[in-house]
């Protein structure tokens, strides 16, 4: 075993806890954890749960920034706990809170129902342009056609952009950066024919127009998805549609 993996140092984690049965309001609870240089904040929380307090609740699954489950506020910034390392935060005490702008369910677990509804509202699946039976083979796509949407398909629904967005904080009905990135992922896909359905979901006050181009969504994204870019592109699309819908009558979806 190399020196790096032997825990020799310790760090204080102040975790915002909320146990609905006993807490009137969320309270910071302090824990001291021994850490090694390769320990993530997620592992530190797991160590607390395993050895100090089994009731500590947090979401996690993949441990490698793929599943998007372990988003939380670490020293006030939205981060994935699995790719934030204790060594980068030491020696000061670290404050860990649930994702900002979301209702707390318990400890670090937030309610995601509204977010899921927003994702569902923009038809997050390919609506084929032309019906094509399976026996006719695959829908082909060139590398350039794939490049048009690929970066937006990297979104892992971790909601860090929602926790960072001041407009979502001010208006929980704002469709938000993540859903806009996902919309662009499908609208940019050459195989897709559902562009108008999706655009019709974002023309409102709580749609794309609630964004004031703060841009922090793209800064905090752990997958470099650039939702701010998706929002900007769709302000243009929505503005064009605003004028086109007068001259180009179309059937309601």
């Amino acid at each position: 075993m190399s020196d790096a993996t032997i825990p020799s140092k310790s760090i204080e984690l102040r975790v915002l806890r909320y146990r609905p049965a006993s807490d009137r309001e969320p309270v910071l609870v302090s824990y001291r954890v021994a850490y090694s240089d390769d320990m993530s904040v997620l592992q530190a929380l797991q160590s607390i749960k395993d050895t100090q307090d089994g009731s500590l609740s947090f979401r996690w699954s993949c441990r490698m920034a793929v599943c998007g489950s372990c988003g939380m506020m670490i020293n006030g910034e939205p981060k994935l706990a699995c790719n934030t390392f204790v060594r980068d935060l030491a020696p000061d005490a670290v404050i860990i809170e649930p994702l900002q702008n979301f209702p707390i369910e318990r400890d670090l677990v937030v309610t995601v129902g509204d977010f899921v509804k927003k994702i569902e509202s923009i038809y997050p699946y390919i609506i084929p342009k032309v019906a094509k039976p399976v026996e006719d083979g695959a829908h082909l796509q060139t590398p350039a056609q794939m490049a048009a949407y690929e970066s937006f398909s990297d979104c892992i629904n971790c909601m860090l952009c929602y926790a960072a967005c001041p407009q979502f904080g001010a208006n929980p009905d704002f469709i938000g950066p993540g859903a806009m990135a996902l919309l662009q992922r499908y609208n940019g896909d050459s195989r897709d024919g559902g562009r108008q359905f999706r655009l019709d979901q974002i023309h409102g006050e709580d749609g794309v127009w609630a964004c004031t181009a703060v841009g922090i969504c793209s800064e905090v994204c752990p997958k470099q998805v650039d939702p701010a870019n998706a929002v900007n592109q769709n302000k243009t699309n929505s503005a064009l549609d605003f004028f086109l819908h007068y001259v180009q009558p179309r059937s309601q979806p």
Binding site: Y123, G204, W209, A239, P253
Partner: peptide, 19 residues
Amino acid sequence: RPTILHHPAPKRSVAPVFW
């Protein structure tokens, strides 16, 4: 065509004019 569950479209904003 596959069956699509349709969502009602929200009311259109006049923001694009000012934008």
